[in-house]
Design a protein around this nucleic acid. Structure first.
Lengths: 341, 341
DNA sequence: TTGTAGGCGTTATCAG
DNA sequence: CTGATAACGCCTACAA
C-alpha cells in the first residue's frame, strides 16, 4: 500500500518546481518550455501520478469536475436510462457524477440536498419530489447551479429546466383515444405535488372538454409513485358501474403494477380497454399486446441537462435560467384500438 | 450567492475556537463541555454550516464517506436495480456514491479506474469488464478497497467478491430443461472474458454431460453484452438443420433482443422452444408467455457489497479478502415446458 | 520560462 | 476542558 505520489514528488523526479508541474497539469495556465514539459510528462507517467481532486476543490470554491445527480428511483427504467445517459454525457465532458436517490421521499431529498452542499459540487441535476423549496433555494444561494429534469418546481427561480411538454403529451394521447371512439377515458397519473402529475391531468382534461366530453373525477386517479397504488387504481376503475373503455397511465412507476392487475382481471386489452402508457422502454413492445406509448426522448433530456449543468459549471453559459422543452413522441402499437362496446 | 460558512465562522459566532467546533462535529474525538457544545450546535444551525468534505478528504488519506460504483451499464435493469440498492444501502451507512459506467468497454473502464484513484474514494464496488488487471492492482496498492460484484477476476487477489453461484445456476436451469425431456439445448451466454460467461457455460456443459447428452459447439454462443448479438445468435440457432428445443439465455443484456427476435420468428414458446432467461425483473412475468427465470437476489448482492466496502473503509473489517456467494433462485413460469417435438 | 510562498477548510497534536 | 498551530496537496500571484 504505497502512498500516492504528490505533485512535489513529480517535481523532484522531473527536476523542476511544483509550479511547472501544475502548469503542465492544467494545460494553458502558463508557459512551459517544450523540453521541460516532456520531462514532467515522463515523470508523471513513471510515478503514475494522479492529482488529488480534494486538494483542487479545496481552493477553488466549488468543483468544476463533479456534478450531483439526484434522481427519484433507479429501479424505474426511465430514471435508470436517464442516469445512464447523464453519466455518459458528463464523462464526455470530463465531469463525474455523484449519485443520490430520493426514493420519492422529501425527507430523504432534504438530506441529499444537504449532502450536496457539503460536497462542493458545482452543479446538480435533479428530479425533485416537489417539496423542500427552502433547501433548494439555499443550494442556489450557495452558488450551486441547479438543473431540474423531467419535473419542475414553479416557485423556484434561477434554475434551469429540461422536460417534455407534459400537457401536450397527455392531450395527444387522450385525443388519440377519443379519435378511436372512446368517451369514457380514465387517467392514472402521478401525484399532483409533481409538475408532471399536474400537467398530464391538465392535458387530459383539456382534450376531453375540447372534445365535448365530460370528465368524471372518478376517472382521474393521481396516485403515488411508490407502493402498489397503480394496482388499486385499476381495481377501482374496473369496479365502477360503467368502467372506462380507455385508460392512460401517466405514472411511469406504476405501469407495471397496472399491467399486472390488468392481466389478472378478466378484461382484455384492447378489446375491453384501450391502453396507453407513459414512457417507452425495451419491454413495452414485448408484452402482448404491444403497448401504445408516449415516448420520452431520454437522450435529449440527458444531453440538455448535462449541457446546461456543465455549461454553468465551466462558466461558458451565463444567460439567465433556461427552460428547455423537448418533444415526446406518441407511438401507437396494439394496446389501443377502436371502441367496441 | 453567499460564501458558505466555514468552521472559523462558526467558532467566532459561538465564541470558541475552531478546535472545539471540530470536536463537536466529530462527536467523540475529544471532550467538550455540555454548555459549550450547545453554543456550538446553535451557531452551526444559525449559520447553516456544512463541513467541506474536500478539506476533510485532503487531510485524511482517503475519504471514508465516498465509495465509487463502477457498473457496466445502467440501461440494463439488472445493474440499474443493483445501483439503486447500493446507493440505498450506502446512504443508510452515511456513505455517498460516485457513479461511473464502463459500457462494457475496457478502455472506458481504464479511464474510470484512473478517475477513482484521483478521487480518493476509500472503496470501489465494481462489475469489471475482465481486462485492466494492472490498473486494478494499482488501485489496490493505493489502498483502495475493491469489491467485485456479479463478476470476478481470478487473477486479482486481495479483492472481495460478491456473486451468485453461476455454475450452479446454469446447471439448475439446464437440468430443468433436461427433466422436461429436452436434449438439444442451446445456451446464449455473455463473453468468455467474463467470469459469468465462463461459469454459466461450464454449468451448462456439466449438466449436459452428466445427463449423458453431448454438447455441440454450435449450440453454445458466447456473445457480447452490447449490440444486437443476441438477435443474431437466435437467428443462427433457429437456422440450424435441427434447431434446439430448449434455450437458456445467460446474457442478461441480450434477453430483450432474443425475445424480440423470437417474436418475429415463426417459432412459438414454449411449444417449439422452451426458454429460460437469466435474471428476473418486473417485466419478465408480463410478457407472454411469462418467462421462466434464474432470479438473482439483487438486494443481497447490494447489501453484502456495501457491507464489505464500508466495513473496510471504516476499518471495522480487517479479515483477508472474502468471497461471498449468494443463492440464485430458479423460478419456473410458462416459457419452459415438456418437449413436444 | 521558472521558482517561492501563501492559503483553501479541516483535523490532530500538544500546550495551557 | 479549551486554544493555538501544523499539516494535507494543490493552485496562483508574484518575484527572479
Amino acid at each position: 500500500m504505497h502512498k500516492p505520489a504528490t505533485i512535489r514528488d513529480v517535481a523532484r523526479e522531473a527536476g523542476v518546481s511544483v509550479a511547472v508541474v501544475s502548469r503542465v497539469l492544467n494545460d494553458g495556465s502558463g508557459p512551459v518550455a517544450v523540453a521541460t514539459r516532456a520531462k514532467v510528462v515522463e515523470a508523471i507517467e513513471r510515478l503514475g501520478y494522479q492529482p488529488r481532486s480534494a486538494a483542487r476543490e479545496l481552493l477553488q470554491q466549488r468543483s468544476t469536475t463533479t456534478i450531483g445527480l439526484l434522481l427519484a428511483d433507479l429501479a424505474n427504467p426511465f430514471f435508470a436510462r436517464l442516469a445512464d445517459r447523464v453519466v455518459w454525457e458528463a464523462r464526455a465532458r470530463g465531469v463525474h457524477v455523484l449519485l443520490l436517490t430520493t426514493q420519492e421521499d422529501p425527507h430523504l431529498e432534504a438530506e441529499s440536498i444537504e449532502t450536496l452542499m457539503g460536497r462542493s459540487v458545482g452543479a446538480v441535476i435533479a428530479t425533485p419530489t416537489g417539496g423542500n423549496l427552502d433547501k433548494w433555494r439555499r443550494l442556489r444561494e450557495l452558488g450551486v447551479n441547479v438543473v431540474l429534469v423531467d419535473r419542475e418546481i414553479d416557485e423556484l427561480s434561477c434554475v434551469d429546466i429540461v422536460a417534455i411538454d407534459n400537457e401536450l403529451s397527455a392531450r395527444t394521447a387522450t385525443s388519440h383515444l377519443i379519435g378511436l371512439g372512446h368517451e369514457r377515458i380514465a387517467l392514472i397519473s402521478g401525484p399532483l405535488s409533481t409538475s408532471t402529475g399536474r400537467e398530464r391531468v391538465g392535458g387530459f382534461r383539456n382534450a376531453m372538454t375540447e372534445a365535448g366530453l365530460g370528465v368524471s373525477d372518478l376517472l382521474v386517479r393521481a396516485v403515488p409513485f411508490r407502493g402498489d397504488s397503480g394496482s388499486d387504481a385499476v381495481a377501482a376503475l374496473l369496479a365502477l358501474p360503467t368502467p372506462p373503455t380507455g385508460l392512460i397511465v401517466g405514472n411511469t412507476a406504476q405501469v407495471r403494477n397496472v399491467l399486472r392487475r390488468l392481466q389478472q382481471s378478466p378484461v382484455t386489452v384492447p378489446d375491453d380497454l384501450s391502453l396507453i402508457v407513459f414512457d417507452d422502454n425495451p419491454w413495452t413492445e414485448l408484452v402482448s399486446p404491444a403497448l401504445s406509448v408516449v415516448r420520452q426522448p431520454i437522450d435529449m433530456l440527458a444531453v440538455h441537462s448535462v449541457e446546461l449543468a456543465v455549461g454553468r459549471l465551466k462558466g461558458t453559459l451565463t444567460e439567465p435560467a433556461k427552460r428547455i422543452r423537448v418533444e415526446a413522441e406518441f407511438v401507437q402499437r396494439s394496446s389501443s384500438g377502436l371502441r367496441t362496446s
